[in-house]
């Protein structure tokens, strides 16, 4: 069964748009299908040390809701998002071990 969620009824997380952030690691999941952005995010964050930053590249618009949610649940910090026009760059700082 498929569930259609009306995003407008949900509380949208506040997203800070940034540019020029230098990351310690880059993960490119542009054109990869959902939920690869969350799977790779989880995998890559495990590899990073506390204080390091991951740049996650994705064209999936749902990530604008999923990644802030994931950060809130795991306690990591979403520094912000850069919109290149073609895809998004999410900057996530590992703040918990």
């Amino acid at each position: 069964m498929y569930y259609f969620i009306n995003m407008t009824e949900q509380k949208q997380p506040e997203i800070k748009f940034v540019e020029g952030i230098v990351a310690d690691a880059v993960e490119d999941v542009v054109y990869r299908m959902c939920p690869m952005h969350l799977m790779r995010l989880e995998e890559r964050m495990k590899e990073l040390k506390k204080g390091q930053i991951l740049e996650l590249q994705t064209d999936y618009e749902g990530a604008l809701a999923d990644i802030p949610d994931w950060c809130r649940k795991t306690g990591n910090e979403l520094i912000g998002v850069e919109d290149t026009g073609e895809f998004f760059k999410f900057y996530i700082k590992k703040t918990v071990d």
Binding site: D28, Y31, M33, C34
Partner: peptide, 20 residues
Amino acid sequence: EGLRIVPLIYSGIQEEGRRG
């Protein structure tokens, strides 16, 4: 490795999200 490709068949995580 490192190249992007737009899928033909949309679904989920099969083939690393590149072929559903």
